[in-house]
Design a protein around this nucleic acid. Structure first.
Lengths: 337, 337
DNA sequence: AATAATTGTGCAACCGTTTGCACAAAAAAA
DNA sequence: TTTTTTTGTGCAAACGGTTGCACAATTATT
């Protein structure tokens, strides 16, 4: 069926090894032979079989990408397609393939990615999320399998893991400062779950920005919530009801902002006149809202691209040294501040 | 490094072939031996190497998925992550892996998916889009490689291709009827490019719904546009300026609807009081608009799932018979009609 | 008791490449 | 001219599994 190296060899009147060497452009092969073999390959439409090659090379030229199943994360968010584009772009450039694994808790015993790793079909893995005590994470770590996390693993781990992340402290600092500069005060923070590094970092940036402008930090203005529209709504309602409602809101996720916006509108207040709002992720809906939402683009394409780059670096250096890469964010100013 | 079948064989005091047969649960192996071998496998932490297996089986247990690069398609749209979830769910169930290829016109010679197919690393392919005269499509067809398209390939092809699609005629019929039932008349159609099957089908459904209610079709009420917010905006402006502006709009894509909504608001008209609007895809932003947008959910998870199912069927039946599968849509009623 | 069928296992070839080693021919050095 | 080096190619053994065939041991059939 498929044409093999042997048939090329026969047609070119050489041995299979010679053909192999022509493919890898070995310098010991004479120009004559090279031409002869190349012609034979063209004539037969030969393409080397990656599987056979992998077997002997012990490298599949494939990276695995793990996506969380949790629909809500990916739903309102171009993060995953964009990150995949970034990964794909970098991988293609190096002739690597990309194998996808969507986490799925319906698996009987082993997760899909575990099977992939065990079966030896990928050289390394990129995790597009991090959860505390994540099984996949631990399994990769235990097996000393090369992998990179997008997002910063919690403190205990972060110096023994390769990861790519935004400067969340810096971005939150910038956003908060942006609000301060608009003379909005006090500033409230509606944040996602505090067991996530990203939340902690953004809180830290918020605090630092306040401190640098000599504004005292008041935990009454900080509301924690899960990543949902309702959560944002409820948090905002609580803030509105308190005697001293913030004049501006920093939300750590656009979804939270959407909820907060609804609460603000319901209270009969105007954005940005009465309350300004800024948030993270720059979802597509942001520009269609009234007023359009000022948001921070976290650059998912670049996160994917850099993660892949870093993974390649791991695969080349045998020794395991850990590295973190930071991808810049961008504040997209629209009408909500 | 990695433990192989031979080491298991040695530990269990049998030949590698016996171990292999235990793995494949061959009925000729005695219970005693099975137990002995299973213990040895457990003790050594053995996992069969998929690459080696693929080489002899001539099957990689992997399907390739082609995503278009075009950012705008995936941007506002949970279609791709959802479709991938569906593909993944079905593939995992069968122990198949999923290899991703994002189309990329920066490739020098061959597209990524072409390399994947040529290298023999996938058993079949799912295309998550269709473009007229698409190179990937033609290349798969020319090679008689098993593949399934999500979305209906244009007429000339559709009977010699496996595909999964929505009943777009039916869905547009339903949407149009929904508007007619609200006593909205005339009804305008803002559609994407007419060289796409999906546009033609939705136009057809629109026409049929009118005809069934004895409303005459008037091409002045139909505006073609590219898939962009601006396109929708401009189309709507044209309709508004005409002496006889529709009282309801069917848009073939939420993005078009977003543009149209802006135009309507700008004209000082109210939705749904003055003009109703309904569209396709049910993007996440839909529920956050004011008023929330009534939209048709095309069920991308199911599209992916069914496509994978169909592909598996192709891989099993050697003979190439073509099949189409239809995934139901769902009209999500919100406040815009 | 002799023959046939069944059961359980191993041998060895094969899947399509790569690569260390050997070796002849040609070129360079002595 | 002889010896050494270089150049170009082939042989055969991997890589880690699967599977047809052979064959001994057991069980069933006559």
């Amino acid at each position: 069926m498929k044409v093999t190296i042997k048939e090329v060899a026969k047609l070119a009147n050489v041995s299979p090894s010679t053909v192999s060497r022509v493919i890898s452009d070995n310098s010991r092969i004479s120009l004559d032979t090279k031409k002869k073999v190349n012609e034979a390959m063209k004539e037969l439409g030969y393409h080397p079989n990656a599987i056979a090659r992998s077997l002997v090379n012990k490298s599949t030229h494939t990276i695995g990408v793990v996506m969380p199943k949790s629909a809500h994360l990916s739903l309102a968010n171009p993060f995953f397609p964009e990150a995949l584009r970034g990964i794909s772009a970098r991988a293609n450039k190096k002739g690597f393939f990309v194998m996808l694994s969507v986490e799925d808790n319906e698996m009987d015993k082993h997760s899909n990615i575990e099977n992939i790793v065990r079966a030896g079909v990928v050289d390394g893995v990129i995790m597009l999320y991090y959860r505390l005590g994540d099984e996949t994470f631990n399994m990769l770590k235990d097996n000393k399998f090369p992998f990179v996390v997008v997002g910063k693993p919690v403190n205990g781990n972060s110096n023994r893991v390769n990861y790519v992340d935004n400067d969340n402290i810096g971005a939150a600092y910038e956003a908060t400062t942006h609000l301060i500069n608009k003379n909005k005060n006090p500033i409230g923070l509606i944040t996602g779950p505090m067991n996530l590094t990203v939340s902690l970092d953004r809180l830290e940036g918020y605090k630092r920005a306040l401190s640098d402008r000599d504004i005292s930090y008041n935990s009454d203005f900080v509301k924690e919530s899960d990543f949902s529209q309702e959560g944002g709504f409820n948090a905002m309602v609580t803030l509105l009801k308190s005697g001293n409602c913030p004049k501006a809101i920093l939300a750590t996720d656009d979804l939270l902002a959407l909820g907060a916006i609804n609460a603000i509108k319901k209270a009969g207040l105007k954005i940005p006149r009465d309350i300004s709002i800024i948030s993270f992720n720059n979802i597509p809906a942001a520009e269609f809202l009234t007023p359009p939402l000022t948001s921070i683009d976290i650059n998912p394409f670049e996160l994917g691209y850099e993660a892949t780059e870093l993974l390649f670096q791991c695969l080349e250096n045998r020794k395991s040294t850990y590295q973190a890469r930071i991808v810049p964010t961008k504040l997209i100013e629209r009408g909500s501040c």
